[in-house]
Every structure is written in structure tokens, then in C-alpha cells.
Amino acid sequence: MTTDMDLQSDAAQLLLQYKAPLYAYIHASVRNRSDADDIFQEVSVAVVESFSKLESEVVFFSWAREIAFRRVLSYYRNYDREKPVNPQLIAVLAEAAERVEQKQPVSTRREKLLECLDRLPEVSRALIARCYDNSGESLGTIAAQSGLKVTAFYAKIHRIRTILRECIAQRLLEESVE
């Protein structure tokens, strides 16, 4: 017999499992990490509260993504009235998130990205870490400390990101061949 407790536990487990693609969808839709955090929390609450309505765990991601879609729309309606969002765009991104998850789970890509970060030369790794380490330092400050002009620094970061994406693609390809 499935108890409410089992259901909650299952919901929490599935949320953890699909956190990355759900979060990526929300982040792509609102493009603000702080707002994405809030929306993800709202989605998590809604998922746990209404998990008993889910007919099959096989469709969990589609179901949770639908909840996220509604929350993102609600976010734009409530907080960004001056910039009305195109609901079609949010729907398109939701479908894209589902396709991405079906083709190649985001968690796999995440794993490859971490591997690729390890393979970067230390100089590049330190540079990209500086950009993402929450230190709050501006591009100008980091550029100055690196002995580069801002435009050159921006270009360098773009190149590192490109290298990382190529590395991810290569590793995913190798894995599919194996």
C-alpha cells in the first residue's frame, strides 16, 4: 500500500532527479538566478502538494515542467508587467526542455561539463572560476587583475566557453559511439 509518506518521499526523490532540467528551463525563461530560485521553490511545493494526482512517474518531468510553465507565466504576469512576455516563447522553451531531456538528459551534459572543466588548463579554469565564483568582482576588475583589456577579457571568456561546449559535444559523441 502506498502511503502519503511514500508519496512525499517519491516526490522529493523525483524532484532531486529532475532538478537540473527543471531549473535550466526556469532559468532560460526568466534569465535571473534569484527569480529562478524562487520559482523553483514554488514549483517544488506544488509538485509535493499535488503529487498524488500524478498518474505515472514516467511522465513526471512533463507534469512538473507544466507546473513550471504556469509558474513562469504567473511570474511575468505578477512581477514584470512592464515587459509582457510572449507566452508562446515560454511554451516553446518548455517543449525544448522536454526534447532536450528526452534526447540527452541535462544531468549527463552537466557531468561532461564538469569533466571538461577539469581538463581545462589551470589558467583558463582559474579565469572562468573568477567569472562565476560569486565574488562579485566586476569584469573590469577581473580583467585588470588578469592584465587584459575588458574587450579582450570578454573575448577570452567567450573562447573558453566555446572550448567547453566543444569538449562537451565531443565527449557526448564519444559516449554515444561507445
Binding site: 531549473y23 525544448a96 551534459r109 561546449r165
Partner: peptide, 26 residues
């Protein structure tokens, strides 16, 4: 993005990468 499904998929992947980088950096 609305008309090019492949571009929308890439945005999702890039958003995911951005989050991983932010988490890794932190």
C-alpha cells in the same frame, strides 16, 4: 527562438551550462 526549435534547445543547454558553471565556481 519561437520559430527555430534547435535554437530553443540550445538555449536550454546553455542555461544548464551557466548554472553548472555558477555552482562549480561557487
Amino acid at each position: 527562438l519561437c520559430n527555430e526549435p534547435e535554437l530553443a534547445e540550445r538555449l536550454i543547454k546553455y542555461a544548464s551550462d551557466d548554472l553548472v558553471l555558477a555552482e562549480w565556481g561557487a
